[in-house]
Design a protein around this nucleic acid. Sequence first.
DNA 1: CTCGTAAAACTTACAGCGCTAGTTTAACGA
DNA 2: TCGTTAAACTAGCGCTGTAAGTTTTACGAG
Lengths: 216, 216
Amino acid sequence: MARPRTPLLSRDRIVAAALRLIDGEGLEVLSTRRLAAELSVSGPSLYNHFATKDELLDAVVDSVIGEVDLSMFGRPDTPWPEALRAWARSYRAALAAHPNIVPVLAQGPGRRPNALRLADAVFGHLVDSGWPRGQATRIGALMRYFVTGSALASFAAGFPADAEVYDAADYPHLGEAHRLAGHRGTVDEGAFETGLEALLEGLVLRFERLAARPVR
Amino acid sequence: MARPRTPLLSRDRIVAAALRLIDGEGLEVLSTRRLAAELSVSGPSLYNHFATKDELLDAVVDSVIGEVDLSMFGRPDTPWPEALRAWARSYRAALAAHPNIVPVLAQGPGRRPNALRLADAVFGHLVDSGWPRGQATRIGALMRYFVTGSALASFAAGFPADAEVYDAADYPHLGEAHRLAGHRGTVDEGAFETGLEALLEGLVLRFERLAARPVR
DNA sequence: CTCGTAAAACTTACAGCGCTAGTTTAACGA
DNA sequence: TCGTTAAACTAGCGCTGTAAGTTTTACGAG
């Protein structure tokens, strides 16, 4: 077939179909052929819209980043610790809604539009709140480390559910670790919330120390 | 050729060669054929030692985790904040020494021997220091989130070096972001250290609050 | 020592992968 | 109208992980 009268594909259509496939069946299922079949076209047709499969995956990642709520940064009266907390939760929720794309998201450069928009919002609010620019940059970075790390893989699932794995000679403190996998949601969520609160508390202390001496 | 008189391969040899190849040329270069060629054998021979390529990669990951220094947890007189700090730095350094395998490491379950040994050491030291077991579990998890997140991708490299990308209408606060990529090392390292200190400070506050009320 | 079994190497081959090159037709603008 | 560009298809390439079959060696039981 030659060029159709009405376009069969668009970047948005392709991205949405790819995300649906990845969410529904996993990242490794996303081949160009499989995705094309979902869109009732042939594999190479995708290359009319994306130069490489990686470019397509970048666009999928950016659409997920676009789901992160940034509204808390648009309210100058919202204290930065509260804004960071709300944002980190929204960020993690967006990633949790699409766990299968997170490995790509966590690894790749963040340089696409929604990622830059996110960085701009966080950085802007911190600087407006009084953080020096260099520190604000670091906070943007470290929060990304923490949130993407927490969304990437389940900590609890890393422990086999078979109690016999934990030979007391090798792992003297892991006698109860086989129970973790069965509480995966609460363990992982609890760790995220604990870490988030610890980070915020630590940053508040740092901010107060900065406020107690001249801002340069 | 049939079975040789002296073994050509062993799991350790295969893992070491795989890590060398990944470190030297990247993860995507590691095909079974390429790895086999490095070992002067044929691709399918690897399957005598590992059931799948994923199992091989798991073993490579575990060898990297084995490089993390855990000695600070063997000294009961070392305060837990100092032990966590030293460990997090060693953990990140081990990952920084092998950046190309980090995506696999960060994503996969941690259930192999060295990963369990690491978890045992951290958990054990925290519990011995007075942390309740549930909290100690969370701390082990959140530290993993943070360290692997920080080692996974450069934050600074996520910002294009071309200043024209940052249209002030879209990104009003990112006027200087094009400079980040040129300071990649110091930005990323600084963010890690800032986050680590904030985490530890926050956890110290939490520990003191726990100590101020009955331990259950 | 013999013999059956398991193990470790090789070769051949499969199905699937991302992507290129070439062809056909439609859209677009001069 | 016509040349160029764009979007779809087909055929095909080199590469991927891995299965199946063959050959030889190691091992342990009898």
